[in-house]
Structures are given as C-alpha cells and as structure tokens.
Simulated scan of single mutants.
Amino acid sequence: MIMYGASGHGKVILEILESNNDTDIRVWDDAAKPDMWEYPVEKPLPPGSVMPGKMVISIGVNATRKRVAERFANTVEFGTAIHADAYISKRATVDEGTVVMAGVRINPDTRVGKHCIVNTCASIDHDCVLADFVHISPNATLSGDVHVGEGTHIGSGASVIQGIRIGKWCTIGAGAAVVRDIPDYSTAVGVPAKVIKTKHV
C-alpha cells in the first residue's frame, strides 16, 4: 500500500496497515521529510506513472485530501485502511480511500463515502450516510440516520442526535451536541450546538 502523506496522521495509518500484516508499505510526501520509523519517505511518482500498488491518502485536512485524490484520480487505484480492532457491520459499506482507526464501531446500513476518516473510537450508528472527504474525529458519536455532507469535519467528542442533517464543508466543534440540522459551510459549536459563522462561497 502507498501512503501519501508523512505526518502524525500518517503514523496512525501506517500502524493500521501493520495491524493487517501489510508487508509492502511505501510512504510518499511532496516535502523532504525524515524516515517514518523504518520506512523511508519517498517523493511521489507523477500522475500517469505505473503505480506500485493501491494508495490511501494519509492527510487529515479534508480539502487537501480532496485535491490529492483529484490529482491521482485517473492513475491510481485507491485502497482502504481499516484497523484490525475496528468493527464494521457486514451490512455497512466503506468506499475507496477511506481510513478507519482502532476502536471504531460502524453499525448496519451505514454508508461511508470516499476518502473519509473515521478516527479512533468514533461511533457511527445505523443508517448514517457520510459523503466523501468527511472526517469524524476521535470519540465522536453519530446516532442513527445522521447524514453528513461532503468535506465536513466533526470534532472530537461531538455528539449528533438521530435524524440530523449536517451540510457540506461544515465544522462541528469538539464536544458539541448537535440537536438541529446544520446548513452548508457552517461552523457550529457548543451545547446545544449553535452556528457561529457561515462561509460565503
């Protein structure tokens, strides 16, 4: 597996691959960086090259991850990285490029899109839908039938009650309690969560 991004986030993904006994791990980064433990950090091959394996993008920033995915969209096969200690229902789906950390639980009929991050000990209940490039931070909880739009980041320890719709490219603050729908491009914080600003695009 190729890991694109030699960062702290990348360290977690590297250990996910090790947890699945992947013995052919390559670490790529555009910047010159020191080795990641015993793994040398290499410059990426340019798009259009023959790629030496599947890729996961080990970058935590959603917008950056999307740019990298688009850069390599037609030249690489994206894999998934799912920790051996994660539970994913056999009736849930996880799309290409997504990473799932240790202690995660994803329950039945949930659909997780492309290039998402479901971080350590997050809980995603039944019938949830995560669009592409979503990041669910450590210990966040989504109750049943929650929909999260593209590129949205749910902060550490946030809780979302059942049936909520959160728009695209939103930020939900750490520890927030989301009890009402959140519109696109919003930042919401607090208990209960309130929108404090909205991006104009």
Score class of each variant (00 low, 15 high):
residue 21 N to R: 13
residue 21 N to Y: 09
residue 21 N to L: 09
residue 22 D to V: 11
residue 22 D to T: 02
residue 22 D to K: 13
residue 22 D to S: 07
residue 22 D to A: 07
residue 23 T to F: 09
residue 23 T to C: 12
residue 24 D to S: 13
residue 24 D to P: 00
residue 25 I to S: 01
residue 26 R to Q: 13
residue 27 V to K: 06
residue 27 V to F: 03
residue 27 V to Y: 00
residue 28 W to R: 12
residue 28 W to M: 08
residue 28 W to Q: 07
residue 29 D to P: 02
residue 29 D to Q: 04
residue 30 D to L: 14
residue 30 D to F: 12
residue 30 D to G: 05
residue 31 A to T: 05
residue 32 A to Q: 15
residue 33 K to Y: 08
residue 33 K to P: 08
residue 33 K to I: 03
residue 33 K to F: 08
residue 35 D to P: 06
residue 36 M to C: 05
residue 38 E to H: 14
residue 38 E to L: 11
residue 38 E to A: 11
residue 38 E to P: 02
residue 38 E to V: 08
residue 38 E to W: 10
residue 39 Y to E: 01
residue 39 Y to R: 06
residue 39 Y to N: 02
residue 40 P to Y: 05
residue 40 P to D: 04
residue 40 P to C: 08
residue 40 P to F: 05
residue 41 V to R: 05
residue 41 V to C: 04
residue 41 V to P: 00
residue 42 E to Q: 15
residue 42 E to S: 14
residue 43 K to H: 12
residue 43 K to Y: 10
residue 43 K to Q: 15
residue 45 L to M: 11
residue 45 L to K: 12
residue 46 P to S: 11
residue 46 P to C: 03
residue 47 P to L: 08
residue 47 P to T: 05
residue 48 G to C: 10
residue 48 G to P: 01
residue 48 G to H: 11
residue 49 S to T: 10
residue 49 S to N: 09
residue 50 V to R: 14
residue 50 V to K: 15
residue 50 V to M: 13
residue 50 V to W: 05
residue 51 M to A: 13
residue 51 M to L: 11
residue 52 P to N: 09
residue 53 G to W: 08
residue 54 K to R: 13
residue 54 K to H: 11
residue 54 K to A: 10
residue 55 M to S: 03
residue 55 M to G: 04
residue 55 M to L: 13
residue 56 V to P: 01
residue 56 V to F: 00
residue 58 S to G: 04
residue 59 I to W: 05
residue 59 I to A: 04
residue 59 I to C: 03
residue 60 G to I: 00
residue 60 G to F: 00
residue 60 G to N: 09
residue 60 G to W: 01
residue 60 G to Y: 01
residue 61 V to K: 15
residue 61 V to P: 03
residue 62 N to Q: 11
residue 62 N to C: 10
residue 62 N to V: 00
